[in-house]
Simulated scan of single mutants.
Amino acid sequence: MSEQDYEYLDAPEDLSQIPVPGKLVRQTREQRGLSIEDMSARTRLTDNVLHMVERDDYLGMGEPVYARGYYRKCAEALGLNGDLLVEAYERHSGTMSPVPTIDQRPSIAYREGPGRVALAVAIGLILVVFAISALWLWDKDGAAEAAAQTAPSPVGAIPTPQPSTAPVERPARTEVDASSRNEAPMQSPLVTPAPTLAAVTAQPTPEVRPTATPQASAAAPAAAPVRPEVRVEVQGGEAWLDVRDPSGNKLLYKLLQPGSVREFTGQPPFKLSLGRADNVRIWVQGQPVEFKAQIESDLRAFFYIDAQGRVSDEVTP
């Protein structure tokens, strides 16, 4: 199908001029001489899904993201333009993707003439104020420094003592009487005599009481909830991912192209809904997650992942 076949897509209100995408897929398949089984081998879609595509069973195909993927796979297998085929599906099914709007503020237009003069006057006033402030601060600092240099010494200041150079007179030594040398030495009041053995044994032995072990005043704080890191990669083809936490918050909700990588963290268990799950690879805390058993025949998968990367079909306590 060429670009000229879709020139009428610029007029979405006239749906009668837009070919039905499923009918176009079926006609092209028959012209190529291909059967449903041949298409299934080329697109890796089941026969049931291909029949829904050719019948334009939009409700049976599920979410619009899955239907767009089915039409793109058929377009690749038949040599059609996938973007135009998906656009035809969106026009007929009423699932046109909303075009994001950008809030663009108007640019500021500078006025000519008196506006420039006013700007120059304002800049001049600012420079004058800055110069006056700098001069005032400089004069203030200079006056403070001069006052500090000429200030007298404070009253009552204690002078620094100077060492004396006068000779020190020592008292004359007196002779000690020989008889006094045989007297008992004087006991210094600062020296306490050592206790005798009898006095030590007579003192009572202090009672030793066991020290009470303090009890824990409060229980240990509760451990913080585990928030594992999850890494998702898309390989081989595009895939749809819908990842939510137990509260229903969307951690990842997007159609990813081949080579895309997304990393996130949150409160497990995570609820995952995948389209083209065969193109998705998942790691939890750096460990790969095996979920091939959850991939259905139409390449969709619905399962849960806990904090250790374990897979289950329903939430485990």
Score class of each variant (00 low, 15 high):
Gln4Glu: 15
Val25Met: 10
Ala11Met: 13
Gly69Leu: 12
Ala202Cys: 06
His92Met: 04
Glu90Gly: 01
Ala224Lys: 11
Gln187Val: 13
Gly69Ile: 05
Gln104Tyr: 07
Pro64Tyr: 09
Ala147Lys: 14
Ile295Val: 14
Gln203Ser: 10
Trp136Glu: 05
Ser35Gly: 09
Ser297His: 04
Lys140His: 10
Ile108Leu: 15
Gln287Glu: 09
Ser180Pro: 03
Ala307Tyr: 01
Asp313Arg: 11
Thr211Leu: 10
Ile305Leu: 11
Trp240Lys: 01
Glu13Phe: 11
Val129Gly: 15
Leu125Ser: 14
Pro269Ala: 05
Val25Pro: 02
Tyr8Leu: 09
Asp306Tyr: 08
Ile123Gly: 09
Phe270Gly: 02
Pro195Trp: 05
Thr316Glu: 12
Pro64Asn: 13
Gly286Asn: 10
Val284Glu: 02
Arg227Val: 10
Arg276His: 11
Thr192Leu: 13
Val128Tyr: 03
Tyr8His: 11
Phe291Arg: 03
Pro167Ala: 11
Val121Phe: 13
Lys254His: 01
Arg42Leu: 15
Asp245Pro: 05
Pro210Gln: 10
Glu290Met: 09
Thr211Met: 11
Ser40Asp: 07
Asp278Trp: 01
Gln187Met: 09
Arg68Ala: 06
Glu207Leu: 13
Glu169Trp: 01
Arg29Pro: 07
Pro317Trp: 04
Asp245Val: 00
Arg310Gln: 15
Thr265Lys: 09
Arg227Phe: 14
Thr46Val: 08
Gly22Glu: 06
Gln27Leu: 08
Leu197Tyr: 08
Gly237Cys: 01
Ala134Glu: 11
Gln4Cys: 08
Glu290Ile: 11
Glu87Asp: 07
Arg310Asn: 14
Leu137Met: 08
Gly60Asn: 13
Pro206Gly: 01
Val208Ala: 09
Pro19His: 12
Tyr71Pro: 03
Arg116Ala: 15
Ile126His: 03
Val86Phe: 03
Ser297Ile: 05
Ser16Gly: 15
Ala220Thr: 11
Leu241Gly: 03
Asn279Gln: 12
Lys73Gly: 00
Arg244Glu: 09
Tyr89Ile: 01
Ala109Trp: 02
Pro152Cys: 07
Pro161Gly: 04
